[in-house]
């Protein structure tokens, strides 16, 4: 049973900082599950570092009560690799968005995955550049109107699982802020994974994307995540499945 009154995870959260996240945003839900996963893994604060890039999700590092780094746009993975090489005892959690990690930071993602650097990357994929006003991202679905694709996005989404799978050894998990227990569990497995682990959290942005698509509120957008089916651990995941795809290599 899940203990709904468990407040232990707050140990990892700096509650004094003012949050920039909008009402209806799911980043806070994701952050809570990451903190809960850390609680259950009994990670000591001196042993872990959070690293974020730029963007709404990029602010997460600033809300951690343990040491954290807010890097340049797209460079969270590169900075993390430097940290890990300099001190392999530190657990490094990269928490950032799709624009930051997959767009501008795509090259570092490609190479950190290839090198199998032992870090955990948690990507809040809201399919938009939210902080800057709602521009198209490499994860925006085809046809979707954004402020820079007023006639619909002409391009397809990037297939991150496909990119990671091209490596001999890989760990990829997919979850959503609607499946909280599942999200927490895959984050735990990702942190425990020996090597490069990537968690894609499929989410949304009501403020700078959803309203342009005709959604009335965050709740309605949350319902779109109902389409995902939990499948456990497999070699591969279909588009509508959430779970873990990995290869020991």
């Amino acid at each position: 049973m899940v203990d709904m009154t468990c407040r232990e995870f707050l140990e990892y959260v700096d509650l004094d900082r003012e949050r920039i996240w909008c009402p209806g945003c799911t980043i806070g839900l994701m952050f809570k599950q990451i903190a809960k996963a850390m609680t259950e893994l009994r990670i000591e604060k001196k042993d872990v570092v959070a690293v974020s890039g730029i963007g709404c999700t990029g602010r997460t590092a600033g809300y951690c009560s343990f040491d954290s780094v807010h890097t340049l746009h797209g460079r969270a993975i590169a900075v993390s690799e430097g940290i890990k090489l300099a001190n392999s005892n530190l657990k490094v959690l990269v928490i950032s968005g799709d624009g930051d990690l997959i767009g501008i930071g795509g090259n570092h993602l490609l190479h950190a995955a290839r090198r199998n650097t032992n870090i955990t990357v948690i990507c809040n994929n809201n399919e938009i550049y939210g902080l800057t006003g709602g521009q198209v991202s490499p994860e925006t679905q085809t046809g979707v109107e954004t402020i820079t694709t007023p006639y619909g996005n002409p391009y397809p989404q990037i297939n991150v699982l496909g990119v990671l799978k091209s490596n001999k050894k890989f760990f990829y998990a997919r979850s959503t802020p609607m499946h909280l227990e599942h999200l927490k569990n895959v984050v735990k497995k990702a942190i425990a994974w020996d090597g490069f682990a990537f968690v894609e959290v499929k989410s949304y942005c009501i403020e700078n994307s959803g309203r342009r698509q005709g959604f009335k509120n965050s709740y309605d957008m949350l319902q779109t995540l109902k389409k995902y089916k939990i499948v456990g651990e497999k070699d591969d995941l279909n588009e509508d499945e959430i779970g873990i795809a990995k290869r020991e290599g």
């Binding site: 590169a78 900075v79 690799e81 430097g82 940290i83 090489l85």
Partner: peptide, 20 residues
């Protein structure tokens, strides 16, 4: 580390320096 580009090189150095 022979990094993927100079952007990675400087940012990796930043990370290592922060790690002490």
């Amino acid at each position: 580390i022979n990094s993927e580009d100079e952007i990675a090189a400087i940012n990796m150095a930043i990370g290592a320096s922060l790690a002490g």
